[in-house]
Write a protein that binds this DNA or RNA. Structure first.
Lengths: 251, 251
DNA sequence: CGTGTATTTGATTCCTCTCAAGTTTAGTGG
DNA sequence: CCACTAAACTTGAGAGGAATCAAATACACG
């Protein structure tokens, strides 16, 4: 189904306008669908595969494992996101893992590379998407560098809300957290134990309410303010091509 | 002088091969040179200028200032680096400041955007450069998320060494640190006081030697190992178009 | 209903920050 | 050439945030 690649077209189109033939070129990309079970790696750190991935459903993260065994999650990806769009010559410096079951479209970089020949506007859209990725890393960088545990976690919760909302999965102030507390720690550079305590403290202070994995952000504007969260760099528009309802397999 | 833009050509060419007419197109970009005095802002956080910058000499950083006044430096740029290559529609979320006196070539995004029409290979090179920027952010992210003060600082010192060497400014294991301890703190997410203590401790343990701003990394491979530093994601080749000697104006 | 994973709790340690000087350095002007 | 000044660097003491170690409890799934 070209239904899958429509997600890619949408994403690129949100960055830069595309001509009809640009859309066609994208939709004509050869790809195959892969289903990844919970906690399974899509690509292992250090591998080189000459392919990249478009998330069709589920949730995927990229991470780096350091020599002491600690792990840093460097990015999260929901439906419509693009993964591992990297220089094909270098081995991947991050592993890619699924949280819950997810589906990706696997696309060869060679075929993708040919898109640059297709049209300049397509090239611009791809470039703009990459700029957005860089910008997103930078936000996380600031989060880790200059915020305390409480702000970091709240910042992540705000971001998750906005992204899940933008993906048409739930509301920004009320959603199932697809992440374990350990994973939240791996994102925010904290230990899972501390994450737990901060989460409890946030609940005690009425900033959030929790029930199992359900998170409710009581006062969104206030929470965003406390976290220094600014969504201006993100996609906030709800994706048009909404596909499946929000079923996060338990992690 | 097209001498200036040769730096840009070099940079792009290190990412992807360029055809002669691609080089011409880049060299034909209209630009003007701006000299920025020490500690002066090139662009203020929140401004929108429709231009980007190619560093001709000196050292420049991008930073975010948070509402509590704390600052996180998100990137450092030496000769040949490209700055503020962003979506022109959004305001800059980071300020840009010079460390010591530096020179940049100011290039309008409109003219730059036209390069995409020139050729696909040029578009690919620009894209590859942006991927490298994203990759670099990610390295810093890991540094902040999962390393302690000592490792973070040592990692930065290793990186500085490699980059200064690649820019033809000094050796990787022996150079003038262009940064104040406060700036090192703003990069590594630490207070300047703690930076000072860690630096002393590194000196006491014989990992580095310091004299004023001069840094000598005693045993480079060992230091890189201690810091978890891996230069594979970086340019390590010494730039061909070496221009001026390493004169860092005192900060 | 048992098993493994995730969450929670408690006690303690320690890394890093904060506050508060003091000291050195580099640059300036008399 | 030396006093002066502002910035950068150092030092010390104390507080606190987050990590570590060690269990206990709750939850999801077969």
């Amino acid at each position: 189904m070209t239904q899958d690649l429509a997600l890619l077209v949408n994403r690129l189109e949100q960055r830069r306008p595309l001509a009809p033939q640009d859309r066609e070129a994208v939709l004509a990309l050869p790809y195959q669908i892969r289903t990844i079970a919970h906690a399974r790696q899509v690509v292992r750190q250090g591998e080189r595969r000459g392919e990249f991935y478009l998330v069709l459903s589920g949730l995927i993260h990229q991470h780096r494992i350091l020599s002491d065994g600690s792990r840093q999650i460097t990015s999260l990806h929901v439906q419509g996101d693009i993964l591992c769009l990297e220089d094909e010559k270098t081995a991947l410096k991050c592993g890619v893992e699924s949280i819950g079951e997810s589906q990706v479209a696997v696309i060869g970089v060679a075929a993708f590379d040919r898109l640059f020949d297709a049209s300049a506007s397509l090239a611009r859209a791809i470039w703009a998407e990459t700029l957005a990725v860089a910008s997103h890393y930078r936000e996380w960088l600031v989060n880790l560098g200059r915020r305390n545990a409480r702000e970091r976690i709240l910042h992540l919760l705000c971001e998750l809300g906005v992204r899940l909302e933008a993906a048409g999965i739930s509301g920004r102030d009320r959603y199932q957290v697809p992440l374990t507390q350990e994973q939240i720690g791996d994102i925010t550079g904290l230990t899972p134990i501390h994450v737990n305590r901060v989460l409890q403290s946030l609940g005690k202070d009425g900033v959030i309410r929790r029930d199992r994995r359900m998170i409710v952000i009581t006062d969104w504007p206030q929470a965003a303010d406390m976290a220094g969260f600014d969504s201006s760099h993100m996609q906030t528009k709800v994706a048009e091509a909404r596909v499946q309802p929000a079923i996060w397999r338990a992690a």
